[in-house]
Nucleic acid binder design. Structure first.
Lengths: 139, 139
DNA sequence: TATGTATGTTAGCATCTGCTAACATTATTG
DNA sequence: CAATAATGTTAGCAGATGCTAACATACATA
């Protein structure tokens, strides 16, 4: 079945961490999300069972092809939604936090409509967002 | 603590049903949400403990003052979000469904920003939405 | 009024997903 | 190399929230 918010957050976090550093450990994921090691351990097993994550020969966590597709999809929602909220005048921290929740509940149709809208009217600060990283995870 | 999506949906449903018919029964709430009678029964006890709901002398479910304030707040999010999505060109059914999930995850700040935006630029179909009721509940 | 249906409640199960405690394994370092 | 630290896993708890089964009560009509 479709992932819950929780699973999507793990995938997104792995994706973001992988871009900063190719060798992601479970403990790093937990730290980023503010979760305990056992919570991450179990989540990784679940995501492995779903074919979204794997472990390499050294024990580092990697996204599978399918996992990467999903993670990118979620991350794109995150960046676009954050930007839209910033454009609406929402304060940076709140924009990121809200985007981080909303990204899991928006349908493809609605997200596409928002993207189209942004493409048409543009964003007020086109260059600022991507650079800063920050998915809104707890720490 | 703050209500979860589930509790908010019960409140909103009670609110909407109360406007159609002042005497709302647990079974009506369950029917509207697609939940079983026991689920509603427990939820009502929880909401009573939180002082958001009460039962009148005939057993009909009523919102307390506090419950009404919350329910209205959530319902306003629902209607405004639905309208915004419609304005963005999202199909009616999807707009309502998305609004029904997003309404629980948007911060006050973001919602205010959206409202301000709508107030400034207006809505493409100002009169159509309110009339139709429909919270997006299952049935 | 008696009987059957509708409604509400209680008890207990299932799933998700966080947690801690305890243990195993691996890495580091004196 | 031996001791300590860091990391990962297993086991089991907790709470939210859906469910069914079974029961109690209320209602409504033959």
């Amino acid at each position: 079945m479709a992932l819950q918010e929780s699973g999507e957050m793990y995938l997104e976090t792995i994706y973001v961490l992988s871009q900063e550093h190719p060798n992601v450990r479970a403990v790093d994921i937990g730290e980023e999300l503010g979760y305990s090691r056992p919570s991450v351990s179990r989540a990784m097993h679940v995501l492995k069972d779903e074919g979204l994550v794997k472990t390499d020969d050294y024990g580092f966590v990697k996204l599978t092809e399918a996992g990467n597709v999903l993670a990118k999809r979620i991350y794109e929602r995150h960046t676009v939604l954050t930007q839209v909220l910033l454009d609406l005048g929402v304060e940076e921290k709140i924009a990121s936090e809200d985007a981080c929740r909303l990204e899991h509940y928006i349908s493809d149709e609605t997200f596409d409509a928002i993207k189209a809208h942004v493409a048409q009217y543009g964003s007020k600060n086109k260059n600022k967002s991507r650079a800063k990283g920050k998915t809104g995870a707890k720490a």
